[in-house]
């Protein structure tokens, strides 16, 4: 567990130190979204969105149905490319980069409808998540290079620690599709953490969970943040979003209508109007 904490925070600290020198104090951001536009055919899904995600925080992303939350999420994860605008991750422009390159930089995600490698066991799923951080290439695997063998042994230890972290250590050898849905989601989070991300993107993690599971998920999210991983969470469940988020961005009809702390958001006029209708 402690090793895990060290590993995750080690991978973040150095970059962040140099960043805080180059960027003025509190403006530092791990993800910066600059004037992003995206349309699908004639539908303008996102229009001129700009905001920053601060490191070591949980950033919520909420909005009514069709507001463009998932689109924005997918733009950051790399499933789509924006029409206009730039996305910075750790001061690096990533809007044109492909998914696996973004994972290497430290962006990991989960899916709304849990996407596991169903016929593999729980621990194998986590091992696959680690693959991107290993040096095992094409030839070194075929020729069984010593570092490959060592890496594979280390990977198993590491995977066990991650399962322990999300509370699935007893089910390491169970087929992942046999887990109950709520646990599958935990496994998906463990797999995402296995790639040692700096930011973890969670796409509606509470979807399909019951109240107890949602509460436990909230605890887990805070625990992950406390280990130094920034989290961006798209969430429908308002109580979870308000509970775990340090800051919240609100989208409505493809536009950013508010950004601030949960308290500010709750009393924001435009947000009230968007959710309850009416307004000016």
């Amino acid at each position: 567990m402690n090793v895990l904490i060290k590993n995750i925070s080690n991978s973040i600290q150095p970059e962040n130190d140099s960043e805080s020198h180059s960027v003025a104090g509190e403006n530092s951001s791990i993800v910066r979204i600059e004037a992003i536009c995206k349309s699908f055919g004639g539908l303008q899904a996102l229009w001129n969105i700009s905001f920053d995600v601060r490191p070591y925080t949980v950033q919520g992303l909420i909005g009514p149905n069709g507001a463009g939350k998932t689109t924005l999420f997918n733009l950051i994860a790399g499933a789509y490319y924006p029409d206009k605008g730039r996305i910075f991750f750790d001061q690096i422009q990533v809007q044109g980069k492909r998914v696996h390159d973004r994972v290497k930089l430290g962006i990991a995600r989960t899916f709304q409808n849990v996407e596991l490698f169903e016929s593999m066991t729980v621990i194998e799923n986590v091992l696959v998540g680690q693959y991107v951080r290993t040096r095992s290439g094409f030839w070194s695997t075929i020729f069984r290079m010593p570092w490959t063998i060592k890496e594979e042994q280390g990977a198993r230890e590491e995977a066990k620690k991650l399962l322990n972290f999300v509370g699935l250590e007893q089910y390491a050898e169970v087929r992942s599709s046999d887990l109950p849905f709520g646990w599958q989601r935990l496994l998906e989070i463990a797999r995402a953490l296995a790639s040692k991300p700096k930011i973890l993107l969670l796409d509606e993690p509470a979807a399909g969970l019951n109240a107890v599971e949602t509460k436990q998920l909230g605890e887990l999210i805070k625990k992950i943040r406390d280990q130094g991983v920034t989290i961006l969470i798209v969430e429908h469940d308002m109580s979870l979003a308000m509970d775990v988020s340090d800051r919240i961005a609100v989208l409505n009809q493809g536009r950013l209508i508010a950004e601030g702390t949960p308290r500010e958001i709750q009393s924001h006029d435009a947000v009230m109007a968007a959710y309850l209708g009416g307004g000016k």
Partner: peptide, 20 residues
Amino acid sequence: LTGKAMQACAINKRAARLSG
């Protein structure tokens, strides 16, 4: 690990791509 990654790709390409 490489073998597992290859299997993962066969089982669920989308999730494999997004696992890097």
